[in-house]
Simulated scan of single mutants.
Amino acid sequence: MKFAENTGQAAEYLRQAIPLMVKHNIPPNPLNYALWYTYVSNRVPELNQELDKTLTTYGTCPNLVGEQMFRQHMIKDEVDSAENVQAGLIALVNDLHEHASVTAEETKNYSDTLQDSLEALQADGGPALPLESIIQTLARKTQDISDSTQRFQTRIDDAQSEIESLKAELEKTRQDARVDPLTGLFNRRVFETELGTLLYSGNAGAVTLVMVDVDHFKKFNDTYGHLMGDKVLQYVGKLLRDFCPEPMLAVRYGGEEFAVIMPALTASKSAELANALREKIQAIRIKQKKSGEVISSITASFGVAESRQEDSINTLIERADKALYSAKEGGRNQVQIAP
């Protein structure tokens, strides 16, 4: 989990967290500081709910419960990813160790055979064994050690491929934790981190937030089914990617709701982009395979809010949400700018 607050905001969260820890007799260790800092910032609602329930039950937060919450809500992705990669590496090392042991044994046998052959050739009175027999034994053992070495080399090559796969898996896990699997957009976790960075960096200009909600989506799902609903969300996600290149950031905020961070754009300019996007969404046509019916009733509502100097993540989202609500109350399929 990343913390994007500036010094002032971070100090304010800490001033709120410490009295709560004292009040509930929470040990002042780094883990608990992180838990309660996150609690007062309200960035992980599920953590707040669990902490509130724990306080109601125990009057405090027992160490073991706190540690479990820390793993579950703050470092779960990192821990799971590390454990999976660690398990893969352990299995890989064990396998290589086994192959190396077999190769070492084959090498020792070959060395013994060489020694025996040398002694046989140097025996008093001539070779103790027929020369042809010694040569055949050496040839056979040489082939054995060659085969064993080749197998080990093959396993090393395979191990290199497995290591590359583990690296790719680790990278994919990190990416999966940030990307919505249905639309391919970044998720709310990335959204809050990036928005916080822009708001709290101290040297950034204004940033405009656009909240997008697909109109009557529940009714659409009930009428046409969830598969068609998913297809709509995928279309909207693609339009957002196409219309909102970097440095803008489009994310799936949750359900049928999306958000777009538009750095250095005024509310009026962002509203123009939002309106163009609204028209593109309105033009979506989806044909049902079974019935052949063309669905053309897809629209979306938009709420636009430009950041103010005093805005936090929550207050900016709240103002954009209010503008979105006004768009829906005003008849949907429109763009509203927060005052």
Results as ranks from 00 to 15, higher is better:
5 E>F: 13
6 N>Y: 08
7 T>F: 11
13 Y>V: 00
20 L>R: 06
21 M>I: 10
25 N>H: 14
30 P>L: 12
34 A>R: 15
39 Y>I: 06
43 R>K: 13
48 N>T: 09
50 E>L: 05
52 D>A: 08
52 D>V: 02
53 K>M: 11
58 Y>G: 01
61 C>A: 15
62 P>Q: 10
70 F>R: 01
72 Q>I: 08
73 H>R: 00
76 K>M: 11
77 D>G: 12
80 D>A: 08
82 A>L: 14
83 E>G: 00
84 N>A: 12
85 V>A: 13
93 V>D: 02
94 N>T: 09
95 D>E: 14
95 D>H: 13
96 L>T: 05
97 H>F: 08
98 E>Q: 14
98 E>R: 14
102 V>F: 03
109 N>T: 11
110 Y>N: 15
115 Q>E: 15
118 L>D: 05
118 L>T: 11
119 E>K: 13
121 L>E: 02
126 G>S: 09
126 G>T: 08
133 S>G: 00
133 S>Y: 11
134 I>P: 09
135 I>G: 02
139 A>T: 15
141 K>D: 15
143 Q>V: 12
144 D>A: 13
145 I>C: 10
146 S>C: 10
149 T>I: 12
149 T>G: 09
150 Q>L: 12
154 T>W: 03
154 T>C: 04
157 D>Q: 10
159 A>L: 06
160 Q>M: 11
161 S>C: 07
166 L>I: 03
167 K>Q: 14
169 E>Y: 12
171 E>W: 04
171 E>P: 06
173 T>A: 13
175 Q>H: 15
176 D>A: 13
176 D>F: 08
178 R>I: 06
178 R>Q: 14
180 D>H: 04
181 P>E: 06
182 L>C: 05
183 T>S: 11
185 L>D: 01
186 F>K: 12
200 Y>P: 08
200 Y>N: 15
201 S>L: 05
206 A>V: 11
207 V>E: 02
208 T>I: 06
214 V>Y: 01
214 V>W: 01
215 D>H: 06
218 K>P: 01
220 F>Q: 01
227 L>V: 10
229 G>F: 02
231 K>D: 08
232 V>C: 08
234 Q>F: 03
242 D>S: 14
243 F>P: 00
243 F>M: 11
245 P>A: 08
246 E>Q: 13
247 P>Y: 10
247 P>K: 09
247 P>N: 07
249 L>Y: 05
252 R>E: 02
253 Y>A: 06
254 G>D: 03
254 G>T: 03
258 F>H: 04
261 I>N: 03
266 T>W: 03
267 A>W: 01
268 S>H: 15
269 K>I: 11
272 E>I: 12
272 E>L: 09
275 N>R: 09
278 R>S: 04
279 E>G: 02
284 I>D: 05
291 S>L: 04
294 V>S: 08
296 S>K: 14
298 I>M: 03
301 S>E: 05
302 F>D: 01
303 G>N: 04
305 A>M: 08
307 S>V: 07
307 S>T: 09
308 R>L: 13
311 D>Q: 11
312 S>A: 02
313 I>K: 04
314 N>F: 04
320 A>L: 01
321 D>A: 06
330 G>I: 09
334 Q>W: 01
336 Q>N: 10
